[in-house]
């Protein structure tokens, strides 16, 4: 017994190191294995609050560009409104009793990261504003990411610049689907993989979100085709997509609350049970 105590006292540093190393490696591994299960995230009141304070200050520096972006978007929406008034599109929808499927919550990025392989953003609204995990986040130029975790007042977002993110996307012109991933290199480009060879693709074609999930509505802009390669192993196209969004400069964003979401999820659940 005496010897055991002696051993522990003599190696107390090493034992402490191994203990703490075990904890930290556990945190690392479990955050890599499945990102939903991460124990610590910046959606807590401490780091969220600090980031909000920092953002309150740095926001002033970009007020002018933010205002310009908003004015441009307003003009675009106005023009859309004028166009629809002329056509009979609105009336037709009213007759069919089609409600808008999606609700939009405005939020602000208080922390942006783009210089590691797994990038996350922090938003300044959380479950109090009705945000839930797996909701889509966009801004006026295109998609930004998917909500990962929410707390009362903050939420973290898996950026599209995250090597773990995978989003359903398609070529606007031809409706060929693929998966949007990021190879971890440039912040201006993402990759669209698994596009069948049949698809006719040209440089400059627009890539938009596909309608195969409830996270994003169909036809939200992502980017344009920059370079097309053929994967040697799978013989599918791998397309380098130039993003419309400047992911290094994000301000206000919109979170999409799909109204069909609960219905869709319940349907999926019952299908899996059977």
């Amino acid at each position: 017994m005496q010897q055991i105590f002696n051993f522990i006292f003599k190696n107390s540093n090493r034992i402490l190191f191994l203990l703490l190393l075990g904890i930290s490696l556990f945190l690392t591994v479990q955050s890599h294995s499945y990102h939903k299960s991460r124990v610590i995230s910046s959606a807590n009141f401490l780091s969220g609050g600090v980031y909000e304070k920092i953002n309150n200050v740095s926001e002033y520096l970009s007020l002018k560009t933010q205002n310009e972006a908003l004015a441009i978007e307003n003009a675009r929406l106005k023009s859309l409104l004028f166009k629809t008034k002329d056509s009979s599109a609105i009336k037709r929808f009213q007759n069919l009793k089609v409600t808008l499927p999606d609700d939009v919550v405005v939020s602000k990025v208080i922390r942006n990261s783009f210089n590691v392989h797994e990038n996350f953003l922090t938003l300044n609204s959380g479950s109090d504003a009705g945000l839930e995990p797996d909701m889509g986040v966009i801004n006026n130029l295109g998609i930004v990411g998917i909500i990962d975790k929410t707390s009362k007042n903050f939420a973290t977002v898996v950026s599209i610049l995250n090597v773990k993110s995978q989003i359903n996307a398609k070529i606007k012109k031809s409706n060929h689907f693929g998966s949007l991933i990021w190879n971890g290199r440039s912040t201006g480009f993402v990759q669209l993989i698994d596009v069948p060879r049949l698809a006719a693709i040209r440089k400059g074609d627009t890539i938009v979100t596909g309608g195969q999930s409830v996270i994003f509505p169909e036809n939200i802009n992502i980017g344009t085709v920059d370079k097309v390669e053929i994967d040697n192993k799978t013989h599918y196209y791998t397309i380098n997509v130039k993003l419309f969004n400047d992911m290094t400069n994000l301000g206000h964003v919109y979170v999409i609350k799909s109204k069909n979401r609960t219905e869709f999820n319940n349907l999926e659940k019952t299908t899996k049970h059977e």
């Binding site: 402490l16 190191f17 904890i23 690392t28 479990q30 590691v116 797994e118 996350f120 973290t156």
Partner: peptide, 29 residues
């Protein structure tokens, strides 16, 4: 032991703020 515990806390704070799991903690330790 004080250094080990302090660097563990230092790394943990960095991980909380940068959403990185436990990589800063491990590297600091």
């Amino acid at each position: 032991s004080g250094l080990l515990i302090a660097s563990f806390l230092l790394g943990l704070m960095m991980d909380v703020f940068s959403n990185s799991g436990g990589i800063h903690t491990t590297a600091c330790l």
